[in-house]
Every structure is written in structure tokens, then in C-alpha cells.
Nucleic acid binder design. Structure first.
Lengths: 138, 138
DNA sequence: ACAAAACCTACCAACTAAGTAGGGTAATTT
DNA sequence: AAATTACCCTACTTAGTTGGTAGGTTTTGT
């Protein structure tokens, strides 16, 4: 299941996408609009900034804003950043790969093969859906 | 990600499927073979029993055994039982549904629609893959 | 009766989630 | 210079989950 952090990130991103014309938007404005704890949202926005999705500006008139087009921000990227691996097993993860101690050989492990299928099916969606699809005007 | 509990369940089930001719198998035998803590495995097998997947017999010569054919035990069933919801959001879950407070209308929520797609793609695999596929002789 | 085995209850340590609270620093505008 | 705002940090809470461990009870075959 997606964590609240991840959900909040999507909420914040959609808000920013829908208000791109405004320029920088205050943390407080997003928090109030989406009813998210200000301090918690602060961390989330910071993570999104460090990941190169958001930009920020300090001082009066400051705030956060998208530095990418909504069509360029995939759901996969946001989920990996805030939620962690998309795959169901570490030995099947593309971005968080870890050798699995359970089977001696990944190439012949049925579980591994099936989990790869699940991963690929999931990725085929979330790698191709973007913020633009979430705000519904692509 | 799948929990260890879930992985252990699959390990135990494949062991039981591969040794169906033996009749009842001791917890200890499975635990030793798959290198799982005896007591932890005990809980898992009990859950599988309560779910109607395994049967058990007490006393000497007792142990656990499959009461369904491997082809009848879907991965989805095992995952839901030990791991929880397969869907990424409660409002998209078939077996653990909960109304989501985030959007006013599920029918028009883009997030909801996309997460439904992810769920359906995932289910199309794990509802159709069974224990028989895991032991690799279907 | 005895031993073997599942069954059941309880507990525990470590970790994570989802915050809350508070403060201080740095950059920017007015 | 003052106000505003993001940035960064520590610490705490509350609740739940994970991955166990310990020990006693019940059933059953011999």
C-alpha cells in the first residue's frame, strides 16, 4: 500500500501542477488546501526538491514550484522516492536490487520469474502515467 | 514488498506440495529444510490452516499437509492472507476496500482509475498463478 | 501411561509511520 | 533594517508491524 507520505506528495504535486501560473506557492497554502500537516509536508516538498522535481524560492513571494513539465514527472519516480521499491521482492527490483538468499539461481526460480512479470506489468503503467494524467488535462 | 512471513509461507507451501506423497510433514522438517525459525513457522502454518489451505494432525505421525491441489492455491490468496492488500490504495482494494477520504468521487478520480489499472494487471497474474506454477510441474 | 506433535497465549526488541513541537539559519524582498 | 519564507535540525509521541522467543496445554498414536 502507498504510504500517506506518498499520497501527500501526489496531492502536493497536483496542486502545484494546477497552479503553475501562480509561480511559487507557499507550503502553508498547499498544506491548508490539502489538509496536510505543515511540518510533515515541509519534509516531503524538500525530498521532492532534492530529487529535482521541485524548485523553491526563499523570502517574500517565495515557495515551491514545479521545475519540470507535468508530463515529465512519472508516477514511478514519485512512488520510488517516497514509497520505496515498486517490485515485490528485492531480487526483482530494478532500482533497489538485492540478491535474494532464498533461491540459488534467479534464472530458474519460478517465484522470481513471476514477480518479474508483476513488476513489468506494474511498471508499464506507472512509468507511463505522469502528473499530467493525474490532473486530467494532458 | 512481500514480508518474510509471506515468503516463508510460499516456501512452506512449495515444500508441502513437493512432498505430498509423504502425508503429514512436521513443522520441524519444513523449518529445517527452508531454514525458518520453528516457532515463527508454526504461526504461519496455523494461519494457512485456518484459511483452509492446510490440514494438520496432532500427535505422533502428525504434521501439516495440503488439503487442496496445488493448482487450486493461487498466489493471490496466499499474499492476501499473509501480506495483506494487493492494491496500492484502500479505495481500490477488492478484498480490503475502504472509502478514501482524499477524493470526493471515485468515478472521476484519476488516481483511483490508474490504481485500478495497476491492481487489475497485478491480479491478472497472481490470481492465475498457483502453487503448481511455483514448483514448476503443472 | 507416555511421548510426540500440534496448538495457544503471552511477551519482547527493533523498527516504521505519521505526525507534533520547537528552534535556529539563510536567502530574498520591501 | 525588517519581514518573510524556505531550510535544517533535534527530540518526542503514539501506534502499529515485523520477526521472533518462551513456555504451557491439548490431542493422539503406541
Amino acid at each position: 500500500m502507498l504510504s500517506k507520505k506518498t499520497k501527500y506528495a501526489f496531492h502536493a504535486l497536483t496542486y502545484l501542477a494546477e497552479n503553475q501560473d501562480k509561480g511559487a506557492v507557499l507550503i502553508q497554502e498547499i498544506a491548508a488546501s490539502k489538509r496536510i500537516s505543515h511540518k510533515f509536508l515541509e519534509n516531503i516538498l524538500l525530498e521532492l526538491k532534492k530529487a529535482g522535481i521541485l524548485g523553491s524560492k526563499k523570502g517574500k513571494g517565495g515557495g515551491y514550484y514545479l521545475i519540470k513539465k507535468p508530463e515529465e514527472i512519472t508516477m514511478a519516480k514519485v512512488i520510488r522516492l517516497l514509497n520505496g521499491p515498486i517490485a515485490w521482492l528485492p531480487c526483482v527490483s530494478l532500482n533497489f536490487y538485492e540478491k535474494c538468499g532464498d533461491c540459488p539461481d534467479e534464472a530458474t526460480c519460478n517465484m522470481h520469474l513471476i514477480m518479474c512479470q508483476v513488476r513489468d506489468h506494474t511498471l508499464s503503467i506507472v512509468e507511463n502515467k505522469t502528473l499530467a494524467d493525474l490532473i486530467g488535462r494532458k
